[in-house]
Nucleic acid binder design. Sequence first.
DNA 1: GACATCACG
DNA 2: GACGTACGTGATGTCC
Length: 936
Amino acid sequence: MSTEFGKGCHLHLIDGSAFIFRAYHALPPLTRKSDGLPIGAVAGFCNMLHRYVEGNTGPDAPTHVAVIFDHSGKSFRNDMYDLYKANRPPAPEDLRPQFPLTRDATRAFNIACKEIEGFEADDIIATLACQAREAGGRCTIISSDKDLMQLVGDGVEMLDAMKNKRIDRDGVFEKFGVGPERVVDVQALAGDSVDNVPGAPGIGIKTAALLINEFGDLESLLDRAEEIKQPKRRQTLIEKRDQIELSKRLVQLDCEMELDFTLDDLEVKDPVSEELMNFLAEMEFRTLTKRIAEQLGVEAPVINDTPQQGASAAGEVDVPEDLPFDPEAYAWVKDAEGLQTWIDAAYKRGYVAVDTETTGLDEMRVDLVGICLSSEAGQACYVPLTHKAGSDDLFGSDQLAEGQMDLEQALAMLKPMLEDESILKIGQNMKYDAKIFSRYGIEVGPIDDTMLLSYALHAGIHGHGMDALSERYLNHTPIPIKSLLGSGKSAITFDRVPIEDAVKYAAEDADITLRLWQKLKPQLHQEQVTTVYEKLERPLVHVLKDMEMTGIKVDRDVLSRMSNSFAQKMAGYEAELYELAGHEFNVQSPAQVGKILFEEMELEGGKKTKTGQWSTPADVLEDLANEHTFARRVLDYRQLQKLKSTYTDALQDHIHPDTGRVHTSYLQSGASTGRMASNDPNLQNIPVRSEEGRKIREAFVADEGKVLLSLDYSQIELRILAEMAGIDALKQAFKDGHDIHAMTASEMFDVPMSEMTPEIRRQAKAINFGVIYGISAFGLARNLHIPRGDAQAFITRYFERFPGIRTYMDDTKAFAKENLYVQTLFGRKIHMPEINAKGPRAGFAQRAAINAPIQGTAADVIRRAMIRMPDAIKDLPAKMLLQVHDELIFEVAEDAADQVIAVAREVMEGAAAPALHMSVPLVVDAGRGANWAEAH
DNA sequence: GACATCACG
DNA sequence: GACGTACGTGATGTCC
């Protein structure tokens, strides 16, 4: 009963992308109840489609209809102009996974759903509209996109579904000042900032229409540009002719695309009840399912939207009733065909859990061994790529094992999906995998990270490693990696693991990651940490990745010379110590040092550690050092030993052979407060306090022609304390740029600023720090080497002068006891499970509760600065290299240093805004130099 | 692998 | 009245 499209037929073409975005913005961020899949745009899309179908009655009803989508990725216009649509922001993260679902929705309504790779929806619409016109039929384009207005006329009209307004030739004239056939000419001149079509600078739609109407068309205008009276306009049109002609080609829609379907294929069909019902039920749209079921006269299917985990309180463990883990279900992907099915699955779902297997843990050095994918719980695959044959061979064979895809081929297949804006890639510690992929030419994005989900949700409650999360939230113990690799000397690398074993282990990781994501993602809303995750965690991953991959240049010779010098001095100290002790011993053993001091030399005041051995920390030795050369020399020896082993020796091993730079790794979820931790090597504890140690920073250098910059927040934690506790005197001092410690001293001890002594100021400074740490008389006494009673008197006096501090501390403790967590000013939660403990642990927890919001807010501030920094400096010859809690290190071309300092300082000082308006200014100090010692 | 020590903010 | 404390990290060495 197919009718050939022709006279009397009416084609409706729906601009699918417009529907999606309108739906997305019209609705709150709904998620599917059972698994937290973002679903708001799909819900809106279905409502709009449904309303559209309902409205299709009467003489204007279509005989043919299709929804046209933009295909993801670049279009042929990017070949003409690589900046086309370049400044368009990527689709929101929670929208991307919904793109494929809107296609499914369209098909569920039994409406033709079309998209073609390399073309935009507008071109398909143009081609179909022209075909309809030539066949003598009518066409209505349901869109308000002005780019489509060039198609209007001779039976083609547009319908703005939002305003329910038809746009005919008059409507086009109203908008562009010319008829549809001249619209592209006007657009070519006016350009389009949204699509990044350059056009003619300085000419807008009004002027463009004026010119086109005067000269007839664009070509005549450009040919006769000399005749234009206004000099500026004339010059622009002559000079920018190429750009204008390019713009015309960009806005000109392609009416003659080759399509693999005809108009006849688009005939209006009634929905197939069962398919539509199944889809709506799968999406868990209760209202819509019920309403449409009634209209179709069928029974609405039962919707099972029981969340896969109970509405759990923070940290509560719930045992899932979920499907069991079945290693036999995991697939070994051996060829392109097999891999394609998994890529297809990722596209169907819109998300995929990804995990890489490598030959080690150092992302900058290891090789990729295999890749795992999973888009549905219980189903996962492993794609082995570089496993070696014959693992039992003593030397190992370099021959590749059988049953593996070619590495290049697999990566070429995966790259488009891993980089596809519409596919969410889920990983556990995704920074690791992103770095590996980046070294193989793939920039993974967008991403979700289960480790960071856990961190945003449960910092302070438990760790965020995969094994711990799996046991806690999936009630499943993953296969230990040790069972495959062994441990110690006999450990092998992953490429030596037999593939059949690797499949079970590796695919399981992807399966676990996906299930964790399904469980944890919906909890963000329940715990009200969505913004923390979205604004402070997820965007940081790629920033850290880039910093780590850039690394910092370290001069091996400087370190090597220092090592030698230290070794010589240490040998001297060692001989002297043997002499003083009367025998040889291990200077590096605190137990032996303690024995000599407190038993052989019979000195007083020795304390024992909880394990019963003599305690010999630096402050104890320091007390003895003036009287006893032995103690002094142990201290001297220890200082050099520390500097040598941890820094001058170890750092040399961390210099990457190819880059000549040191690449640390930041642990984003390391510290419960929101701070980062740095490891392998730790570049956040490079010596600076001692003269000797500071020299190590001279080994951290800028590349030739460049300098290092150091920008650090001045007193950020005290400023935040003043802000949080609302201490007017402190706030005012910061606003006036006063010396805050001197001011505190003046207030506390009634000393005028003019009579301030360094000693009084030092004591006030210690108190200020103590407050941040959750002050105690004992701690302050020890720090200042004063009697405990004096320390208590200081604290009492301090609280008298700044009563707001005491209130803040009491309020914070009370909040923590009530809620079992504390919060930063940006909403980060730091859980305090021990806050109501009895005994000495209570004190710990209370001080931690006081410190965490302060330290955490400072950490949030610098995170915000770091996240904004890449964009701020993107046009400058500068790279951000390191973060040290309140300091950022950059490497910049020498002549751009001042400019970068200005830009980076602005970003850092303004980092709290706009989320938080601080009444205390944040101040950033900057330094520059050939090395880190000079820059600091 | 636990503990002690010490480097940083 | 005694308990035993400054907050947050990571790396190294000893010793079991």
